[in-house]
């Protein structure tokens, strides 16, 4: 039992379970899944589908945070990637031609890699603190996205592009498979090769790692590029899900949700240690919370307050010192005479 409780996934999973349990009691058909026009349909599928972009962004964010960095620009990269691909497709003659869609996707992904490279170079080359370095792109990025779309919302009618975000493969949303591939790649690269160790060591002490023979700068730049790529894919999912690009609103505040998912997953913001599986659970929890709020019917005026309280509760329960304090308090309350006795003796 103790070993299970010590596992880093124990508390995130418990919280996710509690949230799902609440839904089970509130409306039992929350979990009902049925076949609808050749694919599965239900709240759980929705959570996976809508949660997919957040999981992607959060996975990239986990690695950045593991190097003691942070990437605030992911929301803007989401918007830029969506804008870029939609713009390319809308310029084409036949919006549904496969080569055009592939080219648009390729362009958007290359662009997001470049943006990640920019972040990485600012952090390593210019030596700017990550929070400031990525803040630059966070602010400028929305402008870039609006520049690409000319400040308008671009609407597409391209079933091939829409497939990325809404299509289904083997009765499951296609986006789930994209997430699975990216997640598996990230896990394998970091856990089955030395890369994960490099990232953790750079996060603990970049100077010492460099002296030990790790090229810290290359590791950091690579991590920011991966984070940019993840955000780019998320941008494709989001824009293809609604077949439109909205430079103003796409991926707005995504960086905060992603950081939250990473923290709920048990990764420390101080770097040096990361849990990709924890991040996955954290992102799913955030999406489950949103869906729960919509289906329970909480008034929009207080939605954010409710969210904040749940997040607060999650963070408190995860904090070991808080748990200890509560347990100590609880124990002393149970035996009020104990203190008395020792004093008299």
């Amino acid at each position: 039992m103790n070993r299970i409780m010590k596992h880093h996934l124990f508390w995130p999973l418990t919280m996710l379970g509690a949230l799902l349990l609440f839904n089970l009691f509130h409306s039992p058909d929350f979990f009902s899944i049925k076949m609808q026009g050749g694919h599965l349909y239900g709240n759980m599928i929705d959570i996976l589908n809508f949660g997919a972009p957040l999981i992607l962004v959060a996975v990239g964010m986990t690695l950045v945070i593991a190097t003691k960095g942070i990437d605030l620009s992911v929301g803007s990269i989401v918007a830029i990637a969506g804008a870029m691909s939609c713009m390319t497709i809308s310029k084409g003659e036949d919006q549904n031609s496969l080569s055009l869609v592939l080219m648009a996707v390729g362009l958007a992904l290359v662009l997001s890699l470049v943006l990640g490279l920019w972040n990485g170079l600012l952090v390593t080359g210019a030596g700017i603190q990550p929070i400031i370095a990525t803040l630059i792109l966070m602010v400028a990025g929305r402008g870039i996205a609006q520049l690409i779309t000319d400040g308008q919302i671009i609407t597409l009618s391209s079933p091939k592009y829409a497939y990325i975000g809404t299509g289904s493969l083997a009765t499951l949303p296609f986006s789930i498979f994209i997430v699975a591939v990216v997640f598996a790649a990230a896990s394998l690269l970091t856990r089955k090769s030395a890369l994960g160790l490099f990232i953790e060591s750079v996060g603990t002490n970049p100077q010492a790692s460099r002296l030990a023979g790790i090229r810290s700068n290359i590791v950091i730049v690579a991590v920011y590029m991966f984070c940019g790529l993840c955000a780019g894919i998320a941008g494709l999912l989001l824009s293809s899900n609604v077949s439109s690009a909205d430079g103003n609103n796409a991926g707005l505040w995504y960086e905060l949700d992603a950081i939250l998912a990473v923290v709920i997953g048990g990764t420390s913001l101080n770097g040096g240690r990361f849990y990709l599986s924890g991040t996955l659970v954290g992102a799913l929890m955030i999406q489950t919370l949103s869906t729960t709020i919509y289906s329970v019917g909480i008034a929009p005026e207080i939605t954010l307050v409710v969210k904040a309280f749940v997040v607060l509760a999650v963070c408190l329960i995860q904090s070991e010192s808080f748990r200890k304090a509560v347990i100590r308090r609880w124990k002393t309350r149970h035996y009020p005479g104990e203190k008395e006795v020792t004093r008299h003796a």
């Binding site: 809508f50 919302i153 899900n241 609604v242 909205d246 869906t291 919509y294 289906s295």
Partner: peptide, 12 residues
């Protein structure tokens, strides 16, 4: 926004 409109409607 479209994205939020879709997400909320799915849940509704």
């Amino acid at each position: 926004t479209r994205a939020k409109g879709k997400e909320v409607m799915q849940a509704f």
